[in-house]
Nucleic acid binder design. Structure first.
Lengths: 217, 217
DNA sequence: ATTACACGTGGAG
DNA sequence: CCTCCACGTGTAA
């Protein structure tokens, strides 16, 4: 009751719709039916002060912004869920990490497919699924930062138009899209020390569920 | 000064390091050098109350969590920046949307490469860059939700092991990863009405910079 | 107890 | 004006 002593007399929840989020936040209990306000005959927006109105407006905008975040995370969860099963209780951190690793993985798939396509131009037809680029390191019981690998087929060696930086060459109304030649996917360090508390066995299992790409690739 | 009247006597900024963020948040001005506390001869953790200590601990945990978010967004920005140039002032919303669209785009590239690989098993070798799957709809001046398309080559038609849902078949210690056969990328609706204020020309240009994948693909 | 998220708010751009 | 983000906090799981 210290930071929300200036609570607005109504809630923005019914303005934004229900939380419809990730099954954890059901804290939609904030109606406060405008009882016992001093000026009973005032219009619905009680003219407390001009400042209070600005704060409510700012707050409403912030709630809209947060709602957009929620929707974008849901969309991202949908697309990631096409590649790995995520369960319905994935955190946003997990989604961010999974998105990063998934993009790296699709990059690798495209590279390996380009190589296979190049090889099969002289060889017979082989249609291998693009995934087994390298056998994954499954020793995950020690440190959570370890299992990321960087075994990457070098890209400039195969002489073909690189698959990244794609349609930007022709459909470019402005010069905003300079395609940024791919320095081949480095493992984005700065994750090694992100677990402040030592991971327990349960931690590792849960972490493995939430960040599958860190362990299975 | 209303929500932070119970500010802790030191800042967690030096515990977490500087913001090192995305060029906008340089608001690292929170040192408050422990001046004029009531009990001057108390140990550094002033025994205000047991509750105050818990709040500081909770707050510290929250700051660590937010820091992880920041780092994950930076990593995501790095990988997305390998495919489109993003500028250094991309918002997190923009990163989320770009990540979603980038994954969809890489999916399409993989599908088209699979098709090309299938065709070239009988035809001559053709090494086309994977991007021009379909000519993009550039009519973007009307509604911001419109330019997403769904012209998708149907996937089961080409008879080959689908490229998604990748290495999960063999390296699966638990049965958590049931690969979720890809219902081919539908446009994730619920974005059509997310701009509360009507977009101005400046809005559209800025939106185009921030969400390149919604416009160029 | 801890984690994840929303809320109201201040501040920068 | 606005948008974006961090902060301190409450709260549900």
């Amino acid at each position: 009751m210290k930071s929300s002593d200036s609570m607005s007399p109504f809630s923005y929840q019914q303005l934004l719709g229900p939380q419809n989020g990730a099954s954890r936040n059901d804290a939609t209990m904030n109606f406060n039916d405008n009882s016992s306000m001093l000026g009973q005959f005032s219009p619905p927006t009680t003219p407390d002060s001009a400042l209070q109105l600005r704060r409510e407006a700012n707050n409403a905008r912030e709630r809209i912004r947060v709602k957009k975040h929620r929707e974008c995370f849901m969309d991202l969860k949908d697309v990631i869920g096409r590649h790995v099963s995520l369960g319905k209780d994935v955190s946003r951190l997990a989604l961010l990490r999974s998105a990063t690793e998934l993009i790296k993985k699709l990059e690798r798939d495209i590279i390996s497919m380009s190589q296979a396509q190049n090889d099969s131009s002289r060889q017979g037809s082989m249609s291998d699924p693009p995934s087994p680029v390298s056998t994954g390191a499954m020793g995950m019981a020690t440190s959570p930062g370890a299992p990321l690998r960087s075994a990457m087929p070098d890209f400039q060696a195969v002489g073909l138009p690189h698959p990244f930086a794609p349609a930007l060459n022709n459909a470019n109304p402005t010069q905003l899209f300079n395609p940024t030649l791919p320095n081949i996917p480095q493992v984005s360090a700065a994750h090694a020390m992100q677990y402040q508390h030592l991971p327990t066995l349960n931690d590792l299992q849960q972490n493995m569920v939430n960040h599958p790409f860190e362990y299975i690739m």
